[in-house]
Write a protein that binds this DNA or RNA. Structure first.
Lengths: 192, 192
DNA sequence: CGACACATGTAACACGTTACATGATTTG
DNA sequence: CAAATCATGTAACGTGTTACATGTGTCG
């Protein structure tokens, strides 16, 4: 619900029309994650359907109809800002998913996978520091770059950890095989 | 496409039927992110529609019909494992979204928001280290906990950075138009 | 004039997710 | 027997996302 929440947040500063929301969103996020204008209108419709926004009764001078928050909308924005962001257990992320599946299925070499990922991550790190050097970036952009740097460093350290714990029984094979190898593998798991 | 990819990866180890995939998924991810069985069947249908899996011609001894990868499916899994995980610019994440929107709209105190988030993050950190102590966790679970620890630490450092850069012109006001109260917001329970 | 930004929308689809319906089999 | 687990599926919804249609105003 990222887009939804973001639009509500922007509307908390006052009535806006669709196109305006798009440009303010771009400005706020520093241009990363370009937002398709159509999505703004779609989301706006859905928000109206759910009673969080409403069109301003009297249209603009130029026929544009700005939207404003309803009371419910205001409450929703406030709640969103108050509620701390979810630090999900995040196995949904692609990287841990890959690592766990590689470890579980034994169809790919975990060490190779980890090695690749680490190499890519370190390259990313270099790109990021290069980006940070350039002075043309605005504040939002720079903050996001910093976040990516910290995140990538954490990811690399995690990959080290994974290797440390999983590399034990993994042969240093060069060629990977992803093939159907049937193996009676009755794993029972008890949910906590 | 996390679920989709994960199921394909599991099927790379050999034909499986729906229920089996669910339990293996749970086992592989250590039980975090419980997967609704229905979703397995839904995803399986979509995968069949797209030509990545197919039901095994001869049903099981007990009438269950396992699915297996097609050639396209095998190629897809291999490609998934080969392709390094997307390190997205990730402004879609809730935390940076909140911070950037707060900074952009000036309807909430950024410092308060950052303070809250940091407090929550540090509480999470404590919960996580407590969880790590317990010996009942399997490998997958422990790896994910470690990842969350590293990630949370990175997030905290980022919040420090944000404060450093944004706190300049931000008055220590207590209430704004959209309140950002500090509720008795004790250590949020980490999903166990 | 032609290109381009402004501005609004719709249709269609993908994926994730939950709730529900329905049975067979096992087990206390 | 009753409850739990195994097992399969469907219906419905929500958000994100893209492609497309359409029109106005502006500026070189």
């Amino acid at each position: 619900m990222a887009v939804r929440d973001a639009l509500l947040a922007l509307l908390a500063a006052g009535p806006r029309h669709g196109y305006q929301l798009r440009s303010e969103f771009d400005a706020a996020t520093g241009g990363a994650w370009p937002l398709n204008v159509g999505q703004v209108y779609t989301t706006l419709q859905r928000l109206e359907r759910d009673g969080f926004v409403e069109p301003v009764p009297e249209p603009d001078d130029d026929g544009r109809t700005p939207y404003r928050l309803t009371d419910a909308g205001h409450r929703d924005v406030a709640a969103w800002f108050d509620r701390p962001a979810e630090h999900s257990m995040a196995p949904r992320d692609e990287l841990p998913m890959k690592v766990l599946m590689a470890a579980a299925t034994d169809t790919v070499s975990v060490t190779e996978l980890v090695g690749n990922e680490r190499r890519v991550a370190m390259a990313t790190l270099q790109d990021l520091t290069a980006l940070k050097q350039r002075p043309d970036a605005d504040l939002a952009r720079r903050l996001q770059i910093d976040r990516m740097v910290l995140r990538t460093e954490a990811e690399i350290r995690w990959l080290d950890l994974v290797e440390e714990r999983l590399a034990v029984a993994d042969p240093p094979a060069l060629s990977r095989r992803v093939s159907a190898r049937v193996e009676p593998n009755p794993s029972k798991e008890v949910r906590s």
